[in-house]
Amino acid sequence: MENENINKIMHVLRHAPHGTIYTYEGLEMILIMAAYEQDLSVVFIGDGVYALKKSQDTSGIGMKGFAKTFMALDGYDVEKLYVDKLSLEERGLTEDDLVVDVEVLDSATIGSLMKEQDVIIHH
């Protein structure tokens, strides 16, 4: 580890946003951890990429929408947002469909990033 006081913590979001609470509570965890000045990254894999989709309107299902909260992550110094290329392609989506700027990475690159982590939490 380059700095022994800084841990590399990766959050992996793999669920679609509203059918289960995992992504929403995952985001709550990320926002709290962001205050601890660790080396945080967030990776969207599988249906997790749907959390970032533009044009979500939850008014009809009685739930709070939170896609816009991802736009606020930058303000919490969470800048490492990675999206799995294949997951995006499989769903017929492109970066233009997403609410935030992300880095689209291939499987091997994400695998290498995972290997570097001290802690990985899937949501």
């Binding site: 709550e28 601890y36 939490i121």
Partner: peptide
């Protein structure tokens, strides 16, 4: 609070989910 989880993640050799 979730801050405690962050401490747990930092102070332990492993965090197993």
């Amino acid at each position: 609070g979730l801050g405690t989880l962050t401490d747990i993640a930092i102070r332990n050799d492993r965090l197993v989910t």
